[in-house]
């Protein structure tokens, strides 16, 4: 099993629904966010290109955040999901420094928190909260090891990119372009 997410920058409208859904699903405290929206504009009026991305932890294959963690609080579970065990985390911030995507933050209670790929849902075969809410169906969650999964098909049929591949983390959130 290799969980991944595809994010269609061509359909996303940058509404932030995925952000709010994550907030209410996972009790993300106000002022913090496990996912967020980036808007990129290129070109000169009137020939412009707009890219909208919903970003979150990339659940990298090569996980600097897990490697730098001194306690093992950051770890990888089934399907390659990167998680943090709250009461093993000492709040040293090493993993935050280690993540090139600024996907982690200190929860006000002290431990480090981040996107979990909603493993409490996905382990039951449900979509993640952000995927399930997206009104434009821009988000697809699934198993890359399954050739017939919608996400595998999408990645076969569409052009995609990952963020900052030069950071060497082998991200598993794919941006369809």
């Amino acid at each position: 099993m290799r969980y991944a997410m595809a994010m269609d920058t061509k359909k996303c409208v940058g509404c932030g629904d995925c952000v709010v859904a994550c907030q209410t699903e996972n009790n993300v405290p106000l002022g913090y966010a496990r996912d967020w929206i980036v808007e990129k504009v290129e070109g000169t009026y009137p020939s412009l290109n707009l890219e909208l991305r919903s970003e979150r932890c990339n659940h990298c294959e090569n996980t600097p955040c897990v490697r730098t963690c001194p306690t093992g609080a950051s770890h990888v579970i089934e399907g390659g999901i990167v998680k943090v065990t709250h009461d093993e985390c000492i709040g040293c911030g090493a993993c935050i420094q280690a993540c090139p995507y600024e996907a982690r933050y200190f929860h006000p209670d002290g431990y480090v928190d981040k996107c979990t790929f909603c493993d409490h849902r996905t382990s039951k075969g449900q979509d993640t909260a952000c995927v399930a809410v997206c009104p434009t169906h821009s988000l697809t969650f699934g198993d890359l090891d399954d050739e017939n999964s919608p996400i595998s098909k999408l990645l076969r049929n569409r052009k995609w990119k990952t963020l900052a591949p030069e950071a060497g983390t082998k991200p598993n959130v794919y941006f369809l372009i």
């Binding site: 907030q23 009790n27 106000l30 006000p108 909603c118």
Partner: peptide
């Protein structure tokens, strides 16, 4: 006033 959690009572997802 800043509240740490919007639903501070609940830690685990529903």
């Amino acid at each position: 006033s800043f509240s740490s959690g919007f639903f501070p009572d609940e830690e685990v997802p529903l």
